[in-house]
Simulated scan of single mutants.
Amino acid sequence: MGYDCFVCLFSSVEARDAVLCGGPWFIGGNIVGLDRWTPSFSPASMEGLSSPVWIRMPNLPLQYWDDCNIYRIASRIGVPLWIDAQTGNSGRREYARVCVRMNLANKLQSGVWVNGMNDRFYQKVEHEGIGLMCYGCGKVGHQKEFCPSRLGGQGDAVNRRNVDKRKQGGQVESNSESCG
C-alpha cells in the first residue's frame, strides 16, 4: 500500500471488529493506527486515521473522580472507550487514566478547560505511548525535523527518503530551520 501501511484481511467480521475496537496496538514501541479502509485513504497523510490512546489526567480534583466526569473530560480529547481498572476502583489518585479514540491528524492537546461545579479549571493531559510525534506542530506521525509545516508540505516525502536512506546506511537530508 505504500510507506508504513499494511492491509489486513480477516477471516470473520468478529475478528476484524475485535482488532479495530481493541488496542491500543504497538509495534516496535510505536503506536499503530488501525481503521477501516476508505477510498479517500492516502498513505502520505494521517487524515482519517484514528487510534485508541491512553491518556492521563494528573491531579484531577477529587469531586470529578467518577466515571461520568472522567468520560466528560476525556471526550474533549477524543471518544472515550474505557477507564482503566485502577482508576475505576479508585486504586490510584495520582492521575485518572482513560483510553480515548483520537484522530491522529489533530494536534495533541496538553490539557483542556473544564466547566466545574463552581469554576472553570484547566486539566492537564498526558498521552501515553506515542513514539513518533512532532514537538513543533504537536501532531503524530513525523518528527520535528521532518515537519510538513516547516518543509512546505514536503515533510512526508523527505521523511520517507530519509527512512529509506537510514535502512541503506546512507546520509539523510537536513534542514537548519526550526519548526513552529
Rank of each mutant, 00 (worst) to 15 (best):
R56G: 03
Y122A: 07
K139E: 12
S40F: 04
S51T: 13
V100N: 10
G180Q: 02
Y3N: 08
G155Q: 05
V32S: 04
S11K: 12
G88S: 09
F10I: 07
D84Y: 07
A18Q: 13
G169W: 11
D119G: 01
R93S: 07
G29L: 01
G29N: 02
P43S: 11
P58E: 07
V163Q: 03
R72P: 03
L62T: 15
F10S: 06
S75M: 06
R93M: 10
E128Y: 11
I73R: 02
S90P: 00
V112F: 08
R76T: 05
I83A: 06
V158P: 10
G138T: 13
Y135N: 08
H142C: 09
N30L: 15
A15Q: 10
A96W: 04
H127K: 03
I70G: 06
L20F: 06
G48Q: 02
M57T: 04
P43C: 07
V19N: 03
V32L: 03
D156L: 00
Q86K: 11
C147M: 06
D17H: 12
S178V: 10
D67Q: 11
V112N: 02
S42L: 03
M133W: 04
S176G: 10
E14Q: 14
S110K: 11
N30P: 00
F6D: 06
P52Y: 07
G111W: 01
R150Q: 06
N175L: 08
Q168G: 02
A96P: 04
C99E: 11
G129F: 01
G153F: 03
Y122N: 06
Q168V: 02
N89L: 07
G170H: 12
Y135C: 09
S90M: 10
G155L: 07
C134I: 13
L151P: 07
N118I: 05
H142G: 05
V125Y: 01
D35H: 05
F26G: 00
G91N: 11
M117K: 10
Q143P: 01
P24C: 01
D164G: 04
C21K: 13
P52A: 05
L62I: 15
Q109C: 12
N30Q: 15
I27G: 08
K144L: 11
S176E: 13
P148T: 12
W54Y: 04
D66A: 00
Y71E: 09
C5M: 08
R160N: 02
S11Q: 11
Q109Y: 05
Q143R: 15
R16D: 04
E145F: 04
A85L: 11
Q143C: 07
G48Y: 03
C99T: 10
D17T: 15
F10R: 12
